[in-house]
Amino acid sequence: MSSKDVVLGRIRAALADGTPAPEIPRDYRRGPARVDLDLLVERLIDYKAVVHRLVPAEPEMGIEGSGPQVGPTVDKIDVTAAIRAAISDILPSGTVVVPPGLPAGWLPDGVEALVDDGLPADRIAATDGVVTASAVAVAETGTIVLDASPDQGRRIISLLPDLHICVLRTDQVVASVPEALERLDPTRPLTWISGPSATSDIELNRVEGVHGPRNLHIILLPA
């Protein structure tokens, strides 16, 4: 009898009485009532992502002047124009792959959109970058999550291009991973992004761009 047989036998024995699996507690590790956006920015920059932080005009929101990188002050009616300007600063010209539901008006005039309607991998990889929205972000870990919604698209489009520009609203940021899981549908294809693609060997030599984009830019919007 192999070790595999022993393990599977024990599992079958444990399940033989038909006892249902217990409910998994989800009320642990709650963060503070006010999400620490500075911590999110700090974590992202530590991971070598670039943060373009658009600061709301209302000072009571408690964001202006905080964080390592602070962008221009904008109000709600200027958000689309501010996104377009931020993308233009990152990539003034070229071709980017975009999901079918990306909001109109985000891309500057010099950037051509290649809408992913089932594009082959080689065409996606040949673009200058990808622009997506996001589903949720975790301040504690500096993680951005995509859930394949229409404004985020297939997982492949965020993995093949060398540049990923991701737009994130402050009301999508939560303090901890358990809080992020509450907002996410586990049946959807989730992509968890903590900085540009990187790995390291046993000697901790960091290598970037192994299984995804080497350059990650986050445009952080007011809610």
Score class of each variant (00 low, 15 high):
1 M>G: 15
4 K>E: 15
5 D>W: 08
12 R>H: 11
14 A>K: 12
20 P>W: 06
20 P>C: 07
20 P>V: 07
20 P>L: 05
21 A>R: 11
24 I>W: 08
25 P>F: 09
29 R>P: 00
33 A>I: 12
34 R>N: 12
36 D>A: 10
37 L>S: 01
42 E>W: 04
44 L>H: 00
47 Y>T: 04
51 V>G: 01
53 R>D: 13
56 P>G: 10
57 A>H: 12
57 A>K: 14
59 P>E: 14
63 I>W: 11
72 P>R: 12
74 V>P: 02
74 V>Q: 04
75 D>N: 13
77 I>L: 12
78 D>I: 07
78 D>Y: 08
101 G>Q: 11
104 A>Q: 13
106 W>E: 04
109 D>V: 13
116 D>Y: 03
117 D>W: 05
120 P>K: 05
122 D>H: 14
127 T>P: 07
130 V>L: 05
137 A>T: 06
138 V>M: 03
138 V>F: 03
138 V>L: 00
139 A>S: 15
142 G>P: 01
142 G>R: 01
143 T>I: 09
143 T>F: 03
149 S>A: 15
158 S>H: 08
160 L>W: 07
161 P>I: 08
161 P>V: 08
169 R>C: 09
173 V>M: 02
173 V>P: 00
175 A>L: 06
178 P>F: 10
178 P>C: 12
184 L>Y: 06
186 P>N: 05
192 W>L: 04
195 G>S: 03
202 I>T: 12
206 R>C: 05
207 V>P: 01
209 G>Q: 04
210 V>H: 03
210 V>S: 07
217 H>C: 04
220 L>V: 08
222 P>E: 10
